[in-house]
């Protein structure tokens, strides 16, 4: 039986709708009273695991789930060994550098050398500042990253922006976009190569269902 890893949070509803359109119903995860982390499709053809977005590629890389849905941001940050099979088009957002609106900085290059940058996306942030040759100290935070500049702990943040409302409400402005992100369909490479449980057909059906052009450029 095929196991699908679904991410908790922003991508869950669209992911469930996608599988529903293929006749696989995991909508039990959307039920507020649901506490189950593993449910089967009523037709008994597939099951789904509900895990944190960061853990989706882990379950897929180790083969406990053969396919998963996860944001490009997580793939870029974690670089797991999984097959990237489709851009699903939904869950659009961008990873950006932001600072306090009241600060004098209007571009990432304006930041002083050795300033602090708070981020959940430590690797992406490090890579970006290396690419513009600006030495900075990355401060890892796991939530409410906006508090970094507000409390004065860091000059800037690197964080996901979807509508920009959170930034505006916290008096932050976006300086640079590191990359655009959308939800991706990933698969366990060995299971995909061996076409376990008709995995290739499922992937093909999903691709036809979405048929969205790649929104972002890798890099």
């Amino acid at each position: 039986m095929i196991t699908v890893a679904l991410p908790k949070g922003a991508l869950l509803e669209d992911s469930i709708a996608l599988f529903q359109s293929l006749g696989l119903d995991f909508s039990g995860f959307l039920d507020k009273s649901n506490r189950q982390l593993q449910i089967s499709d009523p037709t008994g053809t597939a099951q789904a695991l509900l895990v944190r977005a960061l853990d989706v590629p882990v379950y897929v890389e180790y083969g406990q789930a053969q396919v998963g849905v996860v944001g490009y941001d997580v793939l870029k940050e974690k670089r797991p060994s999984v097959a990237h099979l489709a851009d699903l088009g939904f869950g659009g957002c961008r990873l950006s550098v932001a600072v306090q609106a009241s600060s004098p900085y209007r571009s990432a290059l304006d930041l002083p050398a050795h300033s602090r940058v708070a981020s959940k996306f430590v690797n992406s942030a490090k890579e970006y500042f290396q690419s513009i040759d600006l030495p900075v100290e990355i401060v890892p935070l796991y939530g409410s990253v906006e508090l970094g500049p507000i409390t004065g702990m860091s000059e800037a943040i690197v964080d996901l922006v979807s509508t920009g409302t959170t930034l505006r409400e916290n008096h932050l402005i976006e300086l640079e976009v590191l990359y655009q992100s959308t939800a991706r369909l990933i698969a366990h490479p060995l299971s995909y190569r061996l076409n376990s449980d008709g995995l290739q057909q499922l992937v093909q059906d999903i691709r036809q269902q979405t048929a969205a052009p790649a929104v972002s450029k890798a890099g």
């Binding site: 060994s81 097959a83 990237h84 099979l85 489709a86 851009d87 991706r184 698969a187 490479p189 995909y192 190569r193 052009p213 790649a214 972002s216 450029k217 890798a218």
Partner: peptide, 10 residues
Amino acid sequence: ARLDRVAIEA
């Protein structure tokens, strides 16, 4: 080699 269809499309 990495089965990265999205990269090829991009």
